[in-house]
Design a protein around this nucleic acid. Structure first.
Lengths: 175, 175
DNA sequence: TATTGTTATACTCTATAACTATA
DNA sequence: TATAGTTATAGAGTATAACAATA
């Protein structure tokens, strides 16, 4: 390795990202979103289900007897993708599908008692992952961050908008 | 459609995400990271290059004559992946590879004048995308958001850390 | 033997659309 | 004809590791 003189290496050994990229919030969002996804996946491995499954269970816990289409729409999943996810949840006994007697094309999906139990476990895990991911921030900073992310999500992920502003109210109030 | 009585639809037509998910910052980070990626990809289509290519050009603009390994390390890319990206940049005449005479295993990569020109264009485009993505926020809020994201990135994307804390300083000070 | 760059392979995701059964 | 769910297929993207040249 040409090791007579250690070259004084003024450039740091640990490779750093260009400041220009680090200065970009969208760049950081992409990287952090990826990191959050990876950490979630690693944590969920022990449970045998994917964060996708967790989201489905949450939807069913809010309003059971959803149709597959309404679940897919609520989460932004493709309907074809949802079929496989529900197959897996059903195999594990966490949800149950039955035909809607009023429209036999539809499946009504419900949470089983085992599904409710799993959901409890997944909620605890998700809280843990979130808390760990945000650990560099104080509680106040976490609230600030969430508020800012939510404002962006209202625009870029409209499904996040919690309430549709009433037509006669000034729309600014909803922000 | 069984259209005698319109059902009064108390559930909103627009499918909404469960509040539980929207309340999670890591969930929002994942979705926003994905949205940022999608918007970048759409914007970069007109240029014929990918955001990956842009990042490589930025690295070369900071410090030319990088080896392929150091570029990959700086950006966190796989070295095998980088080969193809550099092939594409070279085909377009934006970068040039030549062997390092001091170590003939290595390739030194440099920006061509065309690459510099393209980089100018890409910088303008990236600024536009960023500005549009953050448009719901005021300048002060944008700065707040970036500060918070950066603090998270220092932990979850160590390549973002701008300066290595001096060994004699208390490590807590580095956040 | 270890490292740089290259190539090949395989695997995961996702997007698309064809297909069925019901309406 | 249109819709809900299902299935199959293809494509992009990514990760892994085998490989040749050089140290």
């Amino acid at each position: 390795m040409n090791a007579t003189i250690p070259h004084t290496t003024p450039t740091p050994k640990a490779a750093r990202l260009p400041e220009e990229l680090v200065a970009s919030s969208t760049f950081l969002l992409k990287r952090l979103g990826f990191a959050a996804k990876e950490q979630s996946l690693a944590a969920y491995e022990q449970t045998g289900v994917h964060p996708y499954h967790h989201a489905i269970l949450i939807v069913l816990d809010e309003r059971s007897h959803e149709t597959q289409g309404s679940i897919a729409d609520a989460l932004g999943y493709d309907r074809g993708q949802l079929v496989g996810l529900l197959d897996e949840l059903e195999e594990k006994g966490l949800v149950q599908r039955r035909r809607d007697p009023n429209d036999r094309r539809r499946h009504l999906v419900t949470l089983t008692p085992e599904g409710t139990k799993m959901l409890r476990r997944l909620r605890a895990l998700a809280t843990e992952v979130e808390s760990d991911f945000l650990s560099p921030l104080t509680d106040i900073e976490r609230a600030q961050l969430h508020g800012l992310l939510f404002r962006l999500a209202e625009k870029h992920e409209p499904r996040c908008a919690l309430s549709v502003p009433p037509p006669d109210a000034p729309s600014d109030a909803a922000g």
